[in-house]
Design a protein around this nucleic acid. Structure first.
Lengths: 240, 240
DNA sequence: GTCTATAACGAGATAGAC
DNA sequence: GTCTATCTCGTTATAGAC
């Protein structure tokens, strides 16, 4: 850390600045060439540096990729959390839709970074542990909607077949301790289905199929919230 | 076409054989390097040919990619259609599950080809018209399940908000003329959500989250079928 | 200590002459 | 179809500037 005036000395400031410009240029290349062709040399060239200089900032190409991935997960997570926060007083289904819409909006605004985290795995790259927590933020935002609804008694509990019960219990214990097991499974399914909707729109599968993506997404996501058990009206709730 | 005995002359036979071996080698490279790095030269080298020879079979790298994409869509579609056919007499929800499970099974068996068609778009590659029909086969299989259920009066009609009605009507007219508009929208959503489930499993998003993927998938897909309106018991049906 | 530049490696792609 | 000269790449060792 800095030992004198300010939170950051000149050295650190320069370092974070250069780190940021490396990532910015790398993101530019992601858009044009794709993650598989991300090249340290090309990034350095564009920045007027020599390739070996980059190793002061990222020990390897994979570490640069990891930084981009972590940033993308964090940006998506932050967008989802902002929607969660600003819809704090809204009814559960509206909050659900707000968080889902925030995810879609971020994805549409950052297609390359979205593809980096939710598209095909990069050949030869294995995501390290460091990506796990940032990756979980969007899921935790969805869980928070259900948790708050559950606390307010506005969550209907879905039924889960017997053979899934152990799995459901483990899920609930692992990452949603304040939610019933049946909700945990349904949430995980809804989470993946949400990204199915976003990926299809972003990756072109909806071309010539969906022509009003905004309205279509809103409706699909609203039904997803119903599947999870989010109740719109008054004091809801159900047995089990 | 062949001008003499048999359906295929020696020349044509050799040609299709070489074409097949080129595609087989290209698929091998898909697995190790990813679609972005597919290189005609590398394929030729591995086959003991010179790169210019490949151009007699595929005029460009993009044409080879297109052939692989068409093959993948066709293989997936054929798997889905086989499940559709062999479950002809089963109740609608079972057929739905069978078709979905066939898609997942094919994807798990051919992860590279799955990533090619449902993963990130390949930078610089634009899918030509030739891919449209093969790509639609899996969707048409899902539509067939709903159509047959509808004919048998075992399809409940979901409600669709007013602002989606024009879109729903267009969808129904465009590719599911024998289904009510509300079912068409719901089917499109379910279609994308099915591939959300498959992609998350295949691309590693379910690592440390889902530990019994088979049972989880079966349950999620069963609920998807319910969302579409497929009715299990006796003579179902609903108004609207 | 912190950085950048030079040079080099081994591997692979690429373009063109023949 | 072959060969060669020239690119690219990730990565490292080293030397010198601040």
């Amino acid at each position: 850390m800095s030992k004198e005036h300010g939170v950051m000395g000149a050295r650190e400031r320069a370092r974070t600045e250069i780190t940021a410009s490396i990532k910015a240029e790398a993101r530019r290349q992601l858009a044009s060439e794709g993650p598989a062709k991300l090249s340290l040399r090309a990034v350095a060239r564009e920045l007027g540096l020599v390739s070996s200089a980059l190793y002061r900032y990222f020990p390897s190409r994979d570490d640069l990729l990891t930084a981009l991935i972590v940033d993308a997960y964090d940006a998506l997570g932050a967008a989802a959390e902002a929607a969660l926060e600003s819809s704090r007083t809204a009814p559960a289904p509206a909050r659900w839709s707000a968080v889902c819409a925030a995810a879609r909006t971020w994805a549409l605004a950052h297609p390359q970074e979205y593809a980096l985290i939710y598209g095909s795995p990069v050949p030869g790259y294995a995501a390290p542990q460091a990506t796990v927590v940032p990756a979980s933020r969007i899921g935790l935002a969805l869980i928070a909607v259900a948790r708050d609804a559950h606390r307010a008694g506005r969550l209907a509990l879905p039924r889960v077949p017997g053979d899934l019960l152990p799995e459901a219990r483990r899920m609930s214990a692992d990452f949603a301790p304040d939610l019933p097991p049946s909700v945990a499974v349904t949430l995980v399914a809804a989470w993946s289905q949400l990204f199915g909707l976003i990926s299809f729109e972003l990756f072109g599968q909806f071309n010539r199929v969906v022509e009003a993506p905004e309205a279509f997404f809103a409706h699909a996501v609203h039904r997803l919230g119903r599947e999870v058990g989010l109740l719109d009206t008054g004091r809801g709730g159900a047995a089990n």
